[in-house]
Simulated scan of single mutants.
Amino acid sequence: MSDIVVYVRSQPQLGDQIVAFATLYQLKAWWPERRLKVVARDDVGHIYRGLPWVDEFLRARSLLDYARSLTGRTQVSVNLHHSSERFGLINLLRPPAIRMGFRNARISDLVWTHCHRKDESEYIGLANLRLLATYRPLDAEHVARRCFAELARPHRHNPRGSDVVFLPGGGSGPFKRWSLAHYLRLADSLKTLLGADTRYTFVLGRQEARERAELDALRRGDIDVAYCRPLSELSALMLRARLVVANDCGPSHVAQAVGVPYVGVFNQPNPEWFWRRRGAVEVVPREPRAGINAIRPEQVLHACTRALSRTRPMPA
């Protein structure tokens, strides 16, 4: 039995789930005594069960599973799906007192007690928090940073850290991967901006085993590799960074949430996955069909300079 039920998006990718973390954090901050359950279609329970503000995870394999996820005890339902009528129907079967969802010119718009208009030009993580803000005002940037600071708490005394964190992954395929050679050229150029003693960490996952081998072979003392590290450790690493440069990949959403200077390298404009905040700059190919590796390191260096110059002091 759960007092708060959150329906997360039906997408198996890590990034699609990370953008819901701050929403879950804020719900638990508002109602710490209530049990919070996450419901998903996909097998993503391993992502949510380790979060300190999630009490239960349910994988819903059928409409009946979804219908049973709401009980007489449920007081709050938060629906992070953007377009499915299914969740409006589910909330009508046993309506909680508070029903939050996205408004998108569908019949289900009438179900919600609190709603936020779906806008495909709005970063998804921000849209989720703006949905919560229709119930009670909040500062989305501060909530996101506090969320990942809490997640990083087990590593707060770990001295590991670097000036610059690079995220060269892209689980969807090579079209999202700015090359390792470009990142290394950028690293050398950043020393003129940040100092000769600048240190770098490359965050890599299993799909970047080749990149790991190439970096290990370089034996550069200014480069560290964080390979297959948990999100709690990556959160701590990025909170300590002076700058993060990332492809469009799952851990990039941690970097965007912690609020440090951030440069996103995209194969094309993708506003739903880029948080347009102070200190964040996106880089895309100058020619739409040129591909991500048509972006030159000099362009990204310029974006890094802009990101660093626009950043405001971060709260503790």
Rank of each mutant, 00 (worst) to 15 (best):
P137R: 04
H182P: 12
A127F: 02
T192C: 08
P269D: 13
G171R: 12
Q13V: 13
C115T: 11
S10E: 15
L51D: 10
G264V: 05
R242I: 02
L80M: 12
D188P: 05
I124K: 12
T23H: 03
C304T: 08
P288I: 08
Y123A: 14
I98S: 07
G173Y: 04
R9K: 15
R117N: 04
L126N: 10
A303M: 08
V39I: 03
P137L: 06
P154E: 04
A316K: 00
D188T: 13
P96T: 06
R73C: 05
H157T: 11
R145Y: 00
R136Y: 00
L126A: 13
G173A: 12
A144M: 15
V143N: 14
T192F: 06
T134L: 03
P12G: 12
R117I: 00
F274K: 08
W178N: 12
C249T: 15
P96L: 07
L239W: 00
K191D: 09
D224T: 09
P174T: 11
A144N: 12
P269R: 14
Q11A: 15
V111K: 02
Q17S: 14
V19C: 07
D3Y: 04
R242K: 15
A40E: 06
D224N: 10
C228I: 07
N104C: 13
D216K: 02
I223G: 06
M1A: 14
I223Q: 07
D216M: 02
V281P: 12
L180D: 09
W30R: 07
A236T: 08
D248W: 02
G221P: 05
S172M: 11
G125N: 10
V245A: 11
V6M: 13
V38A: 07
L129Q: 10
R296G: 09
L129K: 03
K191W: 02
A133F: 03
M314D: 00
E233V: 05
P285N: 14
L58G: 09
W178E: 10
V38D: 10
G169T: 09
H142N: 12
Y183D: 07
R156H: 04
L36M: 06
S235L: 05
A196D: 08
R310M: 08
R240D: 07
E208C: 02
V265C: 05
Y135A: 13
R130W: 00
R310T: 02
A149C: 06
V254C: 01
R86H: 14
F102G: 13
A246Y: 08
R310G: 03
V265A: 05
R49S: 13
V300H: 11
R153E: 00
T311V: 00
Y123P: 08
A290F: 10
F102P: 14
Y48Q: 13
W31K: 13
Q75T: 11
R310I: 01
V165Q: 10
M238F: 01
A257P: 01
R310A: 07
L234C: 06
E211L: 02
G50K: 13
V5G: 13
R68Y: 03
D188I: 04
A209W: 00
L92K: 15
M100E: 08
I124H: 07
G221R: 08
E33V: 02
K37G: 05
V244F: 04
A255N: 03
A255C: 01
P285Q: 14
R145T: 01
E214F: 01
H302D: 14
V111H: 03
L194N: 08
F202M: 05
R296A: 15
R177P: 06
Y25D: 02
M238R: 07
E211V: 00
E287K: 10
G173C: 07
N128V: 00
R212T: 01
